[in-house]
Design a protein around this nucleic acid. Sequence first.
DNA 1: CTGAAAGCGCTAACAA
DNA 2: TTGTTAGCGCTTTCAG
Lengths: 339, 339
Amino acid sequence: MGNRHTSLKDLARELNVSISTVSRALRNHPDISPEMREKVKQLANLRKYSPNPLAMGLLKQETRMIGVIVPDLVTHFYASIISGIESLAKEKGYFILIASSNESAEKEKESIENLRKARVEGLLICLSQETTDTGHFENLLEQGIPLVFFDRVCLQGQIPTVTADNAEAAGKITRHFYEQGYRRIAFISGPEQLNISRERLAGYKAGLEACNLPVDPDLIERCNLSHDSARQAMSRLLKLPNPPDAVFGINDTVAFAVMKEIKEHGLRIPRDMGLVGFTDEFHATVVEPQLTSITHPTFEMGRKAAELFFDKIEKNAPPETIILQTKLVVRESSAKHSD
Amino acid sequence: MGNRHTSLKDLARELNVSISTVSRALRNHPDISPEMREKVKQLANLRKYSPNPLAMGLLKQETRMIGVIVPDLVTHFYASIISGIESLAKEKGYFILIASSNESAEKEKESIENLRKARVEGLLICLSQETTDTGHFENLLEQGIPLVFFDRVCLQGQIPTVTADNAEAAGKITRHFYEQGYRRIAFISGPEQLNISRERLAGYKAGLEACNLPVDPDLIERCNLSHDSARQAMSRLLKLPNPPDAVFGINDTVAFAVMKEIKEHGLRIPRDMGLVGFTDEFHATVVEPQLTSITHPTFEMGRKAAELFFDKIEKNAPPETIILQTKLVVRESSAKHSD
DNA sequence: CTGAAAGCGCTAACAA
DNA sequence: TTGTTAGCGCTTTCAG
């Protein structure tokens, strides 16, 4: 396997100088003669020398790798956040190691261990929907491992986090429904331990109150974010003696499932039932009717999360809480007026 | 930064033995006393020792990292392939480093360099749609860097590849259209340099011939796989004096775009126009009508690609060409008969 | 059965 | 201005 890279030693031997001279020349150390510097650099170029990150890592005790854990890899949402993380990481000369928790607290813990074993310098995490125990995170904190949460977060104040302004966004949705003439607005939420569930629920309630609508517990459903469980939640809403005339799904995946359920019940969207999602998945404009949704600054969220990580390791900045603003994108599924 | 991991040295000092003894004990070396082995292992557990991969890598000249380059990160298709790669990599104790070429040949080259600098042991690549020059791949070959192509491939025979049976699948689609009563079947292809374009085109033509239908060049369009260019291609087809009554889009993203264009022209699917996609994206069942498509064994493709890589480094196996079978999943968009 | 020493590629303190 | 040496964490001869 001719797999070997040129090393400083190779260059030094070829030039009949010492390894340290080569090292210094390449790194523009002041006390090296200009001619030597040039000579070394030329040969390095020719031989395509690139420093061995393993050796550097061992020496400097840094790997220039950061670990990222997301609930799943196949959703556009997380993929887009990861792109954001990667964009800054790349600029800083870092690589990212990606792991998926598959929404399981167990796998999340396992991934943390694996990534630590790989010696990542820090961890950027979006909680699995199962996660309730925060012990392992506090462990990391004590060990001084930089940690950043994004989207689904916990331990705010202690750990830097980036979230969307979930409450505000949910309020916007409720008020939008109201303006369109909907009066019985349901919310299909996710697991209670997730901040996104709690915050969107709070925003939903606040929105209702702002419109002088009552908060009806019957209209608040929960699902585990899967397609099937979202459909079941919608099915329960439809069986209500006094069913809703509009539904807010906690995310677009849920909304897509809900849409199917509504259609199968023979109801028409948006006339019989308004529908709004959250996070503006790529396919929101492909479904019929096109889905009104909240545009979530995913790429920016990833970049900010990475920024918080670098703030920590470069300036040892205190934990910051960043809240990103969202936009309501009105499409067909909630446009009762123009129907 | 209390970021330090326990080292063999730490354990050795604590037990008052030499580093090599600790190393041997942990690795079950035969000539170490059972008691010593136990003592060492216990302490290692207690102190959460895990070998430093950097040190190992430096010593063994292996990083246990493989690089993966895909055209984009945000499509379910690639995400799913990556999951497949990761599943085997994980079993083998390897990590993967992911890079996206963004469909640019330039960025592809750049990614290869970056990953090489990170000292990945091999590269699994899905070509960007721009890639025509294969010089940098041949370079890698000469340097003895293990290389595997998946889905979009080149240099078959020289380099291990995994593809779907594109021609056979495209033939299935054409015949399916024919059976449903469609007679003017169009194909919206992708860039010519891509094997997937060529193979699917060949299968499409073979399918037509098998059904005794003429191959009409007017019915063969090209796009660059983007949403807009796919719509434009469909628009051109619709403006034909004798337009098609069915369209086969080279992938589901294209098919989704085509679907929109058809709808906006006031045509109904599948009655006025049949539509079939390729690769069975997650959202095929969410659009209306649900999209008939080819199920692409993405996860398996990723796993196979990884297998080929390990075959190469473990057994120095010769380049193999694997062709995976596909399945036609008939949904609403092509079901003229039942309409 | 256990220890000492060399070396993987690199930088930095110390010599010359 | 350049060379020598030690050491990052580990395995592996070679010596006891």
